[in-house]
């Protein structure tokens, strides 16, 4: 195995162009596990830790440009206001040691359905900034996940950053695991209220081949809130609406039975999380008045 250590982003892109099989590594919290278990023996490993701009973030007018290697700890500490859903999800990532190393770029690069960041990213909305020696392109998160551990990157592309919409309303993240910390998701759910567009977005983790949005549930809820004038009245969401939303979220999932849980439990739990997180976000929206 060859170990590439580019000193700059340009060098990294050049190296990736020359060795498309190179696996980028930053915190190593995902890649090293695969190597240790011998699930993966890449011919080239590309250490991105010398490319320090990957660890930076910029807060713009409408978006946050989050460097691919910004560790979860920094997201929790500094981006709670702008990215509340992702900050909550970051809290649930493994242990403090892992959160000090791992970042969103790793989750996106691996594109495992169990990555903790995905439901929050999907619910918040944004784009992946993918770069190569050929140039830079923006891939909407909605188009990024293609299959189990497959994403939309070309072989010569690296993830530079994600551009995430700054929260215009409350966001929540919830994850079921069979212990109270340091656990891989049995399933996870993210929700973001977007009062600016009067829409609701969601994200589901570990309950389909890829991270997905529960689009039917989103459309139903967006319409129901609109029809009842609740964005303006800030009145309570009727339980029947919350219940229907929960059912639609559960129905959007396409889970399997595995060693971590059953498909039917995953569906059930997603419904419960959907109802609760809707309750929490909507209450926060009402209280914010």
């Amino acid at each position: 195995m060859e170990f590439l250590r580019p000193a700059s982003w340009q060098e990294a892109l050049a190296a990736k162009a020359e060795h498309p099989a190179a696996v980028p590594i930053a915190g190593g919290t995902d890649v090293m596990v695969e190597i240790n278990f011998d699930h993966r023996r890449p011919a080239y490993l590309m250490d991105l830790n010398r490319v320090t701009e990957l660890q930076e973030w910029e807060i713009g007018a409408d978006t946050v440009r989050l460097g691919a290697s910004v560790p979860y700890t920094k997201i929790m500490e500094h981006l709670r206001t702008e990215l509340p859903g992702l900050a909550l999800a970051s809290h649930t990532v493994a242990s403090p040691q892992i959160r000090n190393r791992g970042g969103v770029g790793g989750n996106l690069g691996t594109a495992s359905p169990a990555g903790d960041a995905h439901p929050a990213l999907l619910a918040g909305g944004g784009q992946v900034e993918a770069a190569s020696v050929r140039g830079t392109r923006m891939i909407p998160l909605d188009d990024f996940y293609l299959g189990v551990k497959r994403n939309a990157l070309e072989p010569d592309e690296l993830i530079r950053a994600v551009h995430l919409r700054k929260a215009s309303g409350p966001q929540q993240f919830s994850k079921v695991g069979t212990r109270n910390a340091m656990v891989i998701a049995v399933c996870a759910f993210g929700i973001a209220l977007h009062p600016d567009t009067r829409t609701v977005r969601t994200g589901i983790g570990s309950a389909a081949p890829t991270p997905i949005r529960a689009r039917t549930a989103e459309e139903f809820l967006t319409a129901a809130l609109d029809e009842a004038g609740l964005w303006d009245s800030r009145g309570p969401v009727p339980p029947s609406v919350a219940g229907q939303f929960a059912d639609l979220v559960a129905g959007a999932a396409n889970p399997i039975d595995d060693v971590r849980g059953t498909a039917s439990y995953r569906r059930h739990a997603l419904g419960v999380m959907a109802r609760r997180t809707l309750g929490w976000t909507w209450q926060e929206y009402r209280d914010a008045n």
């Binding site: 909550l88 649930t92 929540q172 919830s174 994850k175 695991g177 109270n180 910390a181 656990v183 309750g279």
Partner: peptide, 14 residues
């Protein structure tokens, strides 16, 4: 941290 689910934020008492 003191609730079932812990840091996974699954319940606030519900």
């Amino acid at each position: 941290r003191a609730l079932p689910g812990g840091l996974s934020n699954t319940t606030h008492g519900e």
